[in-house]
Amino acid sequence: MMNNKEIPDFRFTPTIDKVGVEERVARIQTKSIKGESKVQGMKMILNMIDLTTLEGKDTPGKVKQMCYKAQHLHSQYPDCPTVAAVCVYPSMVKIAKDALGNSNIKVASVSTAFPSGQAPMEVKLMDTRFAVEQGADEVDMVISRGKFLAGDYNFVYDEIAAIKDACGPARLKVILETGELVTLDNVRKASEIAMHAGADFIKTSTGKIQPAATMQVTYVMLMAIKDFHARTGKMIGMKPAGGISTSKLALHYLWMVKETLGDEWLSNEWFRFGASSLANDVLMQLMKSKEGVYQSSDYFSID
Protein backbone atom coordinates (compact mmCIF):
# COMPACT_ATOMS: atom_id res chain seq x y z
CA MET A 1 0.00 0.00 0.00
CA MET A 2 1.23 3.41 -0.91
CA ASN A 3 1.44 6.34 1.42
CA ASN A 4 -1.35 8.85 0.83
CA LYS A 5 0.88 11.87 0.42
CA GLU A 6 3.42 10.25 -1.81
CA ILE A 7 3.36 10.83 -5.55
CA PRO A 8 3.35 7.42 -7.21
CA ASP A 9 5.80 6.43 -9.91
CA PHE A 10 3.66 6.85 -13.00
CA ARG A 11 5.72 4.36 -14.94
CA PHE A 12 3.97 1.68 -12.91
CA THR A 13 0.32 2.62 -13.30
CA PRO A 14 -1.79 -0.43 -14.07
CA THR A 15 -2.18 -1.46 -17.69
CA ILE A 16 -5.63 -1.81 -19.18
CA ASP A 17 -7.30 -4.93 -20.53
CA LYS A 18 -8.73 -3.42 -23.71
CA VAL A 19 -10.85 -6.45 -24.60
CA GLY A 20 -12.23 -6.55 -21.07
CA VAL A 21 -13.15 -2.86 -21.22
CA GLU A 22 -14.92 -3.33 -24.52
CA GLU A 23 -16.91 -6.26 -23.19
CA ARG A 24 -17.91 -4.36 -20.07
CA VAL A 25 -19.03 -1.35 -22.12
CA ALA A 26 -20.91 -3.58 -24.55
CA ARG A 27 -22.81 -5.08 -21.65
CA ILE A 28 -23.68 -1.65 -20.25
CA GLN A 29 -24.99 -0.67 -23.68
CA THR A 30 -27.51 -3.50 -23.67
CA LYS A 31 -29.21 -1.88 -20.68
CA SER A 32 -32.57 -0.42 -21.54
CA ILE A 33 -33.91 2.24 -19.20
CA LYS A 34 -37.63 2.89 -19.53
CA GLY A 35 -40.63 4.67 -18.15
CA GLU A 36 -40.35 6.65 -14.97
CA SER A 37 -36.63 5.92 -14.49
CA LYS A 38 -35.95 7.15 -17.99
CA VAL A 39 -37.70 10.46 -17.30
CA GLN A 40 -35.79 10.79 -14.05
CA GLY A 41 -32.53 9.97 -15.80
CA MET A 42 -33.15 12.47 -18.54
CA LYS A 43 -33.86 15.27 -16.10
CA MET A 44 -30.63 14.36 -14.35
CA ILE A 45 -28.77 14.47 -17.67
CA LEU A 46 -30.09 17.96 -18.42
CA ASN A 47 -28.91 19.10 -15.03
CA MET A 48 -25.43 17.69 -15.70
CA ILE A 49 -24.84 19.36 -19.04
CA ASP A 50 -22.10 21.92 -19.59
CA LEU A 51 -23.72 23.76 -22.47
CA THR A 52 -20.79 24.54 -24.68
CA THR A 53 -19.79 26.89 -27.45
CA LEU A 54 -16.10 26.89 -28.35
CA GLU A 55 -15.78 28.28 -31.81
CA GLY A 56 -13.68 30.91 -33.48
CA LYS A 57 -16.90 32.52 -34.66
CA ASP A 58 -18.41 32.90 -31.18
CA THR A 59 -19.84 36.35 -30.59
CA PRO A 60 -21.25 38.01 -27.45
CA GLY A 61 -24.71 37.55 -28.98
CA LYS A 62 -24.22 33.82 -29.44
CA VAL A 63 -22.99 33.47 -25.86
CA LYS A 64 -25.90 35.49 -24.48
CA GLN A 65 -28.35 33.43 -26.44
CA MET A 66 -26.79 30.22 -25.11
CA CYS A 67 -26.93 31.56 -21.56
CA TYR A 68 -30.63 32.28 -22.02
CA LYS A 69 -31.12 28.76 -23.23
CA ALA A 70 -29.15 27.42 -20.25
CA GLN A 71 -31.73 29.00 -17.94
CA HIS A 72 -34.84 28.29 -19.99
CA LEU A 73 -34.32 24.98 -21.74
CA HIS A 74 -37.90 24.44 -22.83
CA SER A 75 -40.70 26.39 -21.23
CA GLN A 76 -43.35 23.96 -22.52
CA TYR A 77 -42.01 21.32 -20.15
CA PRO A 78 -43.06 22.06 -16.58
CA ASP A 79 -40.32 22.09 -13.92
CA CYS A 80 -37.63 21.71 -16.52
CA PRO A 81 -34.22 21.70 -14.83
CA THR A 82 -31.46 24.08 -15.91
CA VAL A 83 -28.08 22.91 -17.16
CA ALA A 84 -25.12 22.77 -14.77
CA ALA A 85 -22.87 25.28 -16.47
CA VAL A 86 -22.02 27.02 -19.69
CA CYS A 87 -18.58 26.47 -21.14
CA VAL A 88 -16.94 29.25 -23.17
CA TYR A 89 -13.60 30.80 -24.14
CA PRO A 90 -11.96 33.16 -21.59
CA SER A 91 -12.87 36.21 -23.68
CA MET A 92 -16.57 35.35 -23.25
CA VAL A 93 -16.54 34.63 -19.51
CA LYS A 94 -17.63 38.10 -18.43
CA ILE A 95 -20.44 38.16 -20.96
CA ALA A 96 -21.66 34.75 -19.80
CA LYS A 97 -21.33 35.70 -16.15
CA ASP A 98 -23.43 38.84 -16.67
CA ALA A 99 -26.00 36.99 -18.77
CA LEU A 100 -26.47 34.30 -16.14
CA GLY A 101 -26.84 36.81 -13.31
CA ASN A 102 -27.66 35.16 -10.03
CA SER A 103 -28.94 31.90 -11.46
CA ASN A 104 -27.19 28.86 -10.06
CA ILE A 105 -25.59 28.09 -13.38
CA LYS A 106 -21.81 28.08 -13.31
CA VAL A 107 -19.49 29.52 -15.91
CA ALA A 108 -16.69 27.27 -17.05
CA SER A 109 -13.85 28.65 -19.12
CA VAL A 110 -11.39 26.71 -21.18
CA SER A 111 -7.82 27.87 -20.77
CA THR A 112 -4.12 27.01 -21.28
CA ALA A 113 -4.20 27.80 -24.99
CA PHE A 114 -7.16 25.54 -25.62
CA PRO A 115 -7.44 23.31 -27.62
CA SER A 116 -3.82 22.55 -28.54
CA GLY A 117 -2.12 23.64 -25.34
CA GLN A 118 0.90 24.58 -27.43
CA ALA A 119 1.94 27.77 -25.65
CA PRO A 120 4.57 28.74 -23.11
CA MET A 121 3.83 28.30 -19.43
CA GLU A 122 3.49 32.04 -18.75
CA VAL A 123 0.85 32.35 -21.43
CA LYS A 124 -1.12 29.43 -19.99
CA LEU A 125 -0.95 30.91 -16.50
CA MET A 126 -2.06 34.31 -17.76
CA ASP A 127 -4.87 32.68 -19.70
CA THR A 128 -6.06 30.91 -16.56
CA ARG A 129 -5.75 33.94 -14.25
CA PHE A 130 -7.62 36.07 -16.76
CA ALA A 131 -10.50 33.58 -16.90
CA VAL A 132 -10.75 33.43 -13.10
CA GLU A 133 -10.58 37.23 -12.79
CA GLN A 134 -13.37 37.53 -15.30
CA GLY A 135 -15.48 35.39 -13.00
CA ALA A 136 -15.07 31.79 -14.16
CA ASP A 137 -16.27 29.30 -11.55
CA GLU A 138 -14.54 26.45 -13.30
CA VAL A 139 -11.48 26.16 -15.50
CA ASP A 140 -11.09 23.51 -18.20
CA MET A 141 -7.40 23.11 -19.00
CA VAL A 142 -5.70 20.90 -21.57
CA ILE A 143 -2.65 18.81 -20.79
CA SER A 144 0.48 18.93 -22.94
CA ARG A 145 -0.10 15.77 -24.96
CA GLY A 146 3.20 16.07 -26.80
CA LYS A 147 5.15 16.10 -23.55
CA PHE A 148 3.04 13.26 -22.19
CA LEU A 149 3.62 11.05 -25.22
CA ALA A 150 7.33 11.85 -25.06
CA GLY A 151 7.32 10.44 -21.53
CA ASP A 152 7.90 13.76 -19.76
CA TYR A 153 5.39 13.05 -17.01
CA ASN A 154 7.06 15.47 -14.61
CA PHE A 155 6.40 18.32 -16.99
CA VAL A 156 2.73 17.36 -17.33
CA TYR A 157 2.34 16.97 -13.58
CA ASP A 158 4.04 20.26 -12.73
CA GLU A 159 2.02 22.11 -15.30
CA ILE A 160 -1.29 20.86 -13.91
CA ALA A 161 -0.18 21.71 -10.39
CA ALA A 162 0.81 25.23 -11.45
CA ILE A 163 -2.51 25.82 -13.20
CA LYS A 164 -4.38 24.48 -10.18
CA ASP A 165 -2.53 27.05 -8.15
CA ALA A 166 -3.53 29.82 -10.57
CA CYS A 167 -7.18 28.74 -10.40
CA GLY A 168 -7.60 29.84 -6.80
CA PRO A 169 -11.17 29.02 -5.77
CA ALA A 170 -12.23 27.88 -9.25
CA ARG A 171 -12.59 24.16 -9.77
CA LEU A 172 -10.13 22.67 -12.23
CA LYS A 173 -11.12 20.24 -14.96
CA VAL A 174 -8.21 18.61 -16.70
CA ILE A 175 -8.76 17.65 -20.33
CA LEU A 176 -6.69 14.63 -21.29
CA GLU A 177 -7.67 14.74 -24.99
CA THR A 178 -7.90 10.98 -25.10
CA GLY A 179 -8.24 10.99 -28.87
CA GLU A 180 -4.56 11.91 -29.00
CA LEU A 181 -3.32 9.59 -26.27
CA VAL A 182 -3.45 6.53 -28.54
CA THR A 183 -3.86 3.76 -25.93
CA LEU A 184 -6.09 3.08 -22.94
CA ASP A 185 -2.92 2.52 -20.89
CA ASN A 186 -2.03 6.15 -21.59
CA VAL A 187 -5.52 7.29 -20.65
CA ARG A 188 -5.19 5.60 -17.28
CA LYS A 189 -1.74 7.06 -16.73
CA ALA A 190 -2.79 10.59 -17.71
CA SER A 191 -5.83 10.29 -15.40
CA GLU A 192 -3.61 9.41 -12.47
CA ILE A 193 -1.15 12.20 -13.17
CA ALA A 194 -3.99 14.72 -13.37
CA MET A 195 -5.69 13.55 -10.18
CA HIS A 196 -2.47 13.49 -8.17
CA ALA A 197 -1.49 16.93 -9.50
CA GLY A 198 -4.71 18.48 -8.19
CA ALA A 199 -7.50 18.06 -10.74
CA ASP A 200 -11.02 18.41 -9.37
CA PHE A 201 -12.43 16.86 -12.53
CA ILE A 202 -10.92 14.83 -15.31
CA LYS A 203 -12.38 15.36 -18.76
CA THR A 204 -11.98 13.29 -21.89
CA SER A 205 -11.74 15.69 -24.78
CA THR A 206 -11.71 19.15 -26.23
CA GLY A 207 -14.31 18.20 -28.80
CA LYS A 208 -11.90 19.33 -31.53
CA ILE A 209 -10.29 15.93 -32.10
CA GLN A 210 -11.92 12.71 -33.31
CA PRO A 211 -12.61 10.44 -31.57
CA ALA A 212 -13.86 12.58 -28.70
CA ALA A 213 -15.54 10.95 -25.68
CA THR A 214 -16.15 7.24 -26.01
CA MET A 215 -17.64 4.92 -23.41
CA GLN A 216 -14.41 2.93 -23.39
CA VAL A 217 -12.14 5.80 -22.36
CA THR A 218 -14.76 7.10 -19.95
CA TYR A 219 -14.91 3.69 -18.31
CA VAL A 220 -11.12 3.63 -17.90
CA MET A 221 -11.17 7.11 -16.38
CA LEU A 222 -14.02 6.19 -14.03
CA MET A 223 -12.04 3.19 -12.82
CA ALA A 224 -9.02 5.46 -12.25
CA ILE A 225 -11.26 7.77 -10.20
CA LYS A 226 -12.55 4.81 -8.22
CA ASP A 227 -9.04 3.57 -7.43
CA PHE A 228 -7.89 7.08 -6.56
CA HIS A 229 -10.82 7.46 -4.20
CA ALA A 230 -10.08 4.13 -2.56
CA ARG A 231 -6.45 5.13 -2.09
CA THR A 232 -6.84 8.74 -0.98
CA GLY A 233 -10.48 9.15 0.07
CA LYS A 234 -10.75 12.12 -2.32
CA MET A 235 -13.62 12.33 -4.80
CA ILE A 236 -12.78 13.43 -8.34
CA GLY A 237 -15.40 14.46 -10.90
CA MET A 238 -15.72 13.10 -14.41
CA LYS A 239 -16.68 14.92 -17.60
CA PRO A 240 -16.98 13.14 -20.92
CA ALA A 241 -17.16 15.73 -23.68
CA GLY A 242 -17.74 15.69 -27.40
CA GLY A 243 -19.78 13.28 -29.47
CA ILE A 244 -22.50 12.57 -26.92
CA SER A 245 -25.56 13.82 -28.71
CA THR A 246 -28.36 11.36 -28.00
CA SER A 247 -30.22 10.80 -24.78
CA LYS A 248 -29.93 7.04 -25.14
CA LEU A 249 -26.15 7.26 -25.15
CA ALA A 250 -26.18 9.74 -22.27
CA LEU A 251 -28.36 7.36 -20.23
CA HIS A 252 -25.79 4.64 -20.81
CA TYR A 253 -23.09 6.95 -19.48
CA LEU A 254 -25.18 7.62 -16.38
CA TRP A 255 -25.70 3.94 -15.89
CA MET A 256 -21.96 3.36 -16.21
CA VAL A 257 -21.21 6.01 -13.57
CA LYS A 258 -23.73 4.45 -11.21
CA GLU A 259 -22.31 0.98 -11.78
CA THR A 260 -18.69 2.06 -11.45
CA LEU A 261 -18.65 4.81 -8.82
CA GLY A 262 -22.06 4.57 -7.19
CA ASP A 263 -24.85 7.03 -6.39
CA GLU A 264 -22.50 9.53 -4.72
CA TRP A 265 -21.28 10.61 -8.15
CA LEU A 266 -24.75 11.05 -9.61
CA SER A 267 -24.98 14.82 -9.32
CA ASN A 268 -23.60 17.70 -11.31
CA GLU A 269 -21.03 18.30 -8.63
CA TRP A 270 -19.26 15.12 -9.70
CA PHE A 271 -20.43 14.32 -13.18
CA ARG A 272 -20.91 16.47 -16.25
CA PHE A 273 -21.58 16.11 -19.95
CA GLY A 274 -19.74 18.49 -22.24
CA ALA A 275 -22.18 18.88 -25.09
CA SER A 276 -23.90 21.34 -27.36
CA SER A 277 -26.62 19.34 -29.07
CA LEU A 278 -27.40 16.78 -26.34
CA ALA A 279 -29.81 19.07 -24.51
CA ASN A 280 -32.26 19.27 -27.41
CA ASP A 281 -32.32 15.53 -27.93
CA VAL A 282 -33.04 14.96 -24.24
CA LEU A 283 -35.78 17.61 -24.32
CA MET A 284 -37.35 15.94 -27.33
CA GLN A 285 -37.37 12.64 -25.47
CA LEU A 286 -38.89 14.28 -22.40
CA MET A 287 -41.63 15.84 -24.49
CA LYS A 288 -42.18 12.49 -26.16
CA SER A 289 -42.81 10.86 -22.81
CA LYS A 290 -45.14 13.71 -21.84
CA GLU A 291 -47.16 13.88 -25.07
CA GLY A 292 -46.75 10.34 -26.31
CA VAL A 293 -45.79 11.38 -29.83
CA TYR A 294 -42.43 11.65 -31.54
CA GLN A 295 -41.10 15.19 -31.67
CA SER A 296 -39.54 17.40 -34.31
CA SER A 297 -36.62 19.77 -33.87
CA ASP A 298 -38.85 22.44 -35.42
CA TYR A 299 -40.49 22.85 -32.02
CA PHE A 300 -37.25 23.39 -30.06
CA SER A 301 -34.84 26.29 -29.83
CA ILE A 302 -31.84 26.19 -32.11
CA ASP A 303 -28.60 25.41 -30.34
Binding site: G292, V293, Y294, Q295, S296, S297, D298, Y299
Partner: peptide, 8 residues
Protein backbone atom coordinates in the same frame (compact mmCIF):
# COMPACT_ATOMS: atom_id res chain seq x y z
CA UNK B 1 -50.88 5.99 -35.63
CA UNK B 2 -47.18 6.67 -35.25
CA UNK B 3 -46.98 7.89 -38.82
CA UNK B 4 -49.89 10.20 -38.18
CA UNK B 5 -48.64 11.63 -34.90
CA UNK B 6 -44.90 11.91 -35.52
CA UNK B 7 -44.17 15.63 -35.49
CA UNK B 8 -41.13 15.34 -37.71
Amino acid sequence: SHMGSHKD
